[in-house]
Amino acid sequence: MQPMALAPPVAPSLRGASLHDGVATRLRMMMFEQELLPGQWIDEKALATEWQISRTPLREALKVLAAEGLVELVPQRGCRVVELDDHDAEQLFPVMAMLEGRCAGEATRQMNDASRAELRHWHEELERHAEAGDRDGYYRANHEFHSLVQRLAGNRWLARCTGDLRRFVRLMRGRQLLMPGRMQASIGEHRELLAALLASDAERAERAMHDHLMAQLVALKALRDQEAQETYAKAHPNA
């Protein structure tokens, strides 16, 4: 199997099945790549000018994203990217841990030589980025690995639930990797997960994936506490 190079995401064309679908796809990617930040107001006029489209398909796209929960339509003010708080993370990650754990367990029953090779490939990408300390590269390879496990499960209902919620996890864009030592801990968790998947050990794979997601929540909480301490120290240098 030829190795698959990990390339930066390419902005999707605005000319798809329908213009507003293409616009919605591009806006999602901008949010996931944090070109549009959580809480940021979306400048419809500027985007319409830059993309050389009317504001009608842009507004239709924003309605789609609002229905998905990714943006908030504010009367008389416009539209802004949703901002997830600590409470959202504490509720979201246990659900994702349950769903992605189930994906990993079901994926073990679908293993063949091709899927094993693909899993190994993306794990090697993770190892390479972890060794280089490349947080963005690690984040992207991690997304590909998790998406592959979801596909390998072969359960369209599970894929639908997991995919819908993964959008919100992607808004955080691997923020937990900012915690010192987190990337090395994460690659260790992935080694355990890969071993379970390759061994077709469903129970072990489900547990490993569940624990991996919950470890991300723990890291997010630790990062939040660290940032709060740093903010306090700056505000009270003589404390």
Rank of each mutant, 00 (worst) to 15 (best):
M1N: 12
M1H: 13
P3C: 04
L6N: 07
L6G: 04
A11F: 11
R15V: 14
G16L: 02
G16K: 04
A17G: 09
S18N: 06
L19Y: 03
L19E: 13
L19D: 08
D21G: 00
A24K: 03
A24T: 02
A24L: 02
M29R: 13
M30I: 07
P38G: 05
Q40K: 03
K45Y: 11
A46Q: 14
A48W: 00
A48I: 03
Q52F: 08
I53V: 12
S54D: 09
R59D: 12
A61Y: 07
L62R: 02
L62I: 03
V64E: 10
A66S: 05
E68G: 04
V74Q: 13
P75N: 06
P75V: 03
R77E: 14
G78M: 06
V82A: 05
D85Q: 08
D86G: 10
Q91D: 13
F93N: 06
V95I: 12
A97C: 01
A97E: 06
L99F: 03
R102F: 07
R102D: 14
R102G: 07
R102W: 10
C103D: 14
C103S: 12
A104S: 10
Q110T: 04
N112Q: 06
D113C: 02
A114H: 07
S115M: 01
S115P: 04
R116D: 10
L119T: 01
R120V: 10
H121D: 14
W122V: 01
H123L: 15
E127Y: 04
E127S: 08
R128Q: 14
A130R: 05
A130H: 08
A130V: 13
G133Y: 09
G133F: 10
D134T: 01
Y139A: 13
R140F: 10
R140E: 15
N142K: 00
H143T: 02
H143G: 03
E144H: 15
H146F: 00
S147K: 01
L148Q: 01
V149W: 00
R151F: 01
R151H: 00
L152C: 11
L158G: 03
A159P: 03
C161M: 13
T162L: 03
G163F: 03
L165A: 00
R166T: 02
V169D: 10
R170M: 14
L171D: 14
L171C: 11
M172P: 00
R173K: 15
G174N: 13
M183A: 09
A185P: 08
G188D: 08
E192W: 09
L197T: 03
L198I: 00
A199S: 05
E206G: 12
A215W: 02
Q216E: 15
L217H: 06
V218M: 14
A219N: 09
L220G: 08
K221M: 12
K221T: 11
K221N: 15
L223M: 05
Q229D: 15
Q229K: 09
Q229E: 15
E230M: 13
T231K: 09
K234E: 14
P237E: 10
P237Y: 04
N238W: 14
A239N: 12
